[in-house]
Amino acid sequence: MDKLVKVGMADLNTAKVPQTIRTSGLGSCIGVVVYDERLKLSAMAHIMLPDSTYARSGVINRAKYADTAVADLIGLLEADGALRSRLKAKIAGGAQMFQFSSSNEAMRIGPRNAEAVKDVLASFRVELVHEDTGGGSGRTIEFNPATSVLNIRTVNKGVVEV
């Protein structure tokens, strides 16, 4: 069993103690971790788009969209014995990497991703414990289910633990 579980772009996975789980290079994407503190179980997704209705092809990658990815994270944790009522979440990302003079709606994908993830978590009644979204910096995050600490790294501001 690998100690570190890596989650790629438009991907999701689970980790339990003694593992940690990480996704790197979040820009406008959102890293969302849902966890059960008592069982020390966690699941993380690296989301690119707010909603699966954006998909243009028949078979969709559910890890890519806020609505389907969060539903799958919860499903995976419940399958491992987690209780829905105990689940909590932390999210990071949703930055605006480039500042444009024109205010094209497509350029605001980061903030829209953040809103969508929060809405979906709320609809499943999962408590959002910490949110580090927006701004203009890329983030790499790593979650430790043993401590429920989320480690957030940026190029310019170093590491913060939440």
Binding site: A10, G25, G27, C29, L49, M97, F98, F100, G136
Partner: peptide
Amino acid sequence: PPALAVDMAMAVLSFGLIEISKAGD
């Protein structure tokens, strides 16, 4: 007009993948 970022490669490249990601991976 151009826009500039100094940051992690994946964080800046993913922005250009948004349109493409609607069609596939």
